[in-house]
Nucleic acid binder design. Structure first.
Lengths: 132, 132
DNA sequence: ATTAACGCAACAGCAAAAGTTACATTAGCC
DNA sequence: GGCTAATGTAACTTTTGCTGTTGCGTTAAT
């Protein structure tokens, strides 16, 4: 895998699940297809389960499945579930004694927040049913 | 210093320079004010010099100064000069055999490119003369 | 009871960034 | 001319976050 791979892994997996929603997949299957490790898969998909996008079942015939219809899951849902950001977060620091620093922080933070919002909007326009 | 500190360091320094453009500053002065190391300062400011935003002079009375008027340097100029990105760059990979992956990559890359463009636009709206 | 799955914690390995040291070069100043 | 104070740069160390890995407990189907 590569940098910022959690989102890639998540989207990739959900994309495939969208194409055959009833099939149960094990983390080992998924890992093999994605070229990574089952534990990593469980780590990432676990977050999606917390967010209500996936369900997992333990035991012999266990594995992972979508928790709702593929066209009811957007790329933004996945992105937000992982709470990792594709936009650098402004450094939240105690207000410094230096006014230049304070003004800059406010400016940059406000720009980044807007950008992040608009990123999420854009991602919300596509569902995982549309990526196969 | 903290994560993504090159841009912070650069903006912070240029902000101060904008307030007193004729004063020559040594990397040691700047490092002290920014709580970092002169070599790090030279590394970062060196990129700004390459981009034509700063000039440096060697030798006894050497140091750093703005290369143009403070109101002719935008935050975008600084951001672009450092060619580090606040928006994660889409992974440029050889087209995979997996169509889901290919479609996703295209979608995500296109969103990220738009977002990056709009970030630069937003940063271009503020000059370093406005942050003090 | 066995087997095959997830859940989780702990640790190892790696890569990028920052920090540091060291030294060459340059330019002002006596 | 020699001294001093600055940049330029390379090499190394340290730190940090992420991925990968191992190990083991728990759960459920057969």
């Amino acid at each position: 895998m590569k940098r910022n791979s959690r989102l890639s892994l998540a989207l990739h997996t959900l994309g495939h699940m969208a194409g055959d929603p009833d099939r149960m997949r094990t983390s080992a299957d998924i890992a093999k297809h994605a070229g990574t490790n089952p534990v990593v898969v469980r780590r990432v998909l676990g977050k999606l389960r917390e967010a209500g996008l996936l369900t997992s079942e333990k035991g012999h015939a266990g594995g992972w499945r979508l928790a709702r219809a593929p066209d009811a899951i957007t790329l933004a849902d996945v992105y937000l579930a992982l709470d990792e950001s594709l936009v650098a977060t402004a450094e939240q620091e105690a207000a410094s004694a230096c006014s230049v620093e304070n003004i800059l922080q406010k400016k940059v933070a406000s720009v980044l927040e807007d950008i992040e919002r608009s990123l999420v909007e854009r991602l919300a326009a596509t569902t995982i049913a549309e990526v196969r």
